[in-house]
Amino acid sequence: MLPAPSRVVDQIVQNRALLWANTIPTVKATCAGFALSLSVSFGLSVALDFMPRLRRALFPIFVVSQTLPLVAIAPLVVLWFGFDLTPKILIVALVTFFPMLVALVDGYEATDREIEDLMRSMGASRLQVFRSARLPSAMPYFFAGLRISITYAVVAAIFAEYVGARAGLGIVILNAKNSFRPDLVLAAVVISSLLTLCLFGCTALLQRVVLGWRDVEGHR
């Protein structure tokens, strides 16, 4: 029942045109969904940081959003928004926004009190304190959240396709499964793993640029 790795590789080579054509919609859904989730979680985190009362009111709702079983929600989202890109973007965003939001909110809170006091003694406004102290302090936390989120993103996109789409790696997997082709299923799985690894590599690269100061001697 389990195809040999060589056979899986063989399938990738043979079906490269099919796989490539279906990878592109998945990449699109993943990237668009992640971009949405990134902007929403950042925007929300800023709003919550400036309005602590809002944080207490809204945070439980965000937690509830993470308890919804995806198997139940995804078909509904497809039902509401159709077979196009929109439902996939929404599902990717729903799955990935939470770790980043939590990381950012916690990161702001982890700002050194003395740095904030110092800035205030310099006459800095709340916005200046946020931009120059709280936001940079949150960056290491943010990247921890980002790395968790990005590994969910491709899986979420494929799941959304699986539930209903015209094309995508999820569709390849669905069709291959229905025609009893485990070798082709695994070929698509390999591609999706490579995709995640690529995205993970991108975040690592970005982290090196943004958090370059942590690489200097004296930190770890």
Binding site: D117, S121, S132
Partner: peptide, 18 residues
């Protein structure tokens, strides 16, 4: 009087990312 004092905190409070 705004901004009359310059304050030097206990620990240096240098921003590690700057």
């Amino acid at each position: 009087r705004k901004n009359g004092f310059a304050f030097m905190p206990q620990r240096d409070a240098l921003m590690p990312w700057r």
